[in-house]
Design a binder for these strands. Structure first.
Lengths: 113, 113
DNA sequence: CGAGTTCATCGTGAAATGACGATAAAGCCT
DNA sequence: AGGCTTTATCGTCATTTCACGATGAACTCG
């Protein structure tokens, strides 16, 4: 097997179109949930960090943010539950990256109003 | 004076460019605050309502949403404090409308990541 | 003036959020 | 195996949010 993947956690990009509507009750709740997840400065910082480094970071986030490790982990969970971020276990650590599909969806929903 | 303005509350559109950066600590907090304001289904519904009707609504929002009047007023205050919505007193009622400038800013900030 | 609207604000209680330290789980290295 | 690192989860506490009814302020109209 090719054991020389340094940080293979981010999916290889998904360009399939998203056919879900950007209006209606469903879309409203979806948008609210995504916005809520982003509605905290620390989480915005995490997202920006992940968008900068194409490569996925893990515990470096803890070093950058002025927060306790458990707090950062909580924020990562919020982002992961919202689908904005993916986490892949890589040995003893976890590798995080943006989910570009959900990011696009968020922008589309916001654009819908 | 021209007293025949039916609902003159929305500003006449502002096309001036927004020169503020879309990155950095300031932008992070700005984005978080905007997202937080949008992070509730009722508030998304209000925004959508206002984006539909070019004309500004006021207490019609209360009729549409399944919430008490005071609750709707609270949500409107959140949106207003975030700058996403403008309210103009028009006689005994208040006329609300989107602030397209802030909406654009929100989309620009989100686009920045 | 006085009654009736319309909306904002206050006070309150239940629930969610944000932060932390402590602890547990899972993997690496010698 | 044993120790070390890394991360997730738990329990807790303080704060914020959400929803409501009640009250108050401002305006219109008879």
């Amino acid at each position: 097997m090719n054991s020389d993947d340094p940080a293979v956690c981010c999916p290889p990009a998904d360009d399939r179109p998203d056919l879900r509507p950007v209006e209606g009750d469903e879309a409203d709740h979806e948008l609210a949930a995504l916005a809520k997840a982003v509605g905290h400065p620390a989480r915005v910082q995490i997202l920006r960090l992940l968008s900068r480094r194409a490569s996925c970071v893990c515990g470096e986030i803890v070093d950058v943010l002025p927060l306790a490790q458990s707090t950062v982990s909580q924020h990562l969970k919020v982002l992961k539950d919202a689908g904005l971020v993916r986490g892949e276990i890589d040995g003893p650590r976890t590798c995080y990256c943006l989910d570009p599909r959900t990011m696009r969806r968020f922008k589309a929903l916001l654009g819908g109003l």
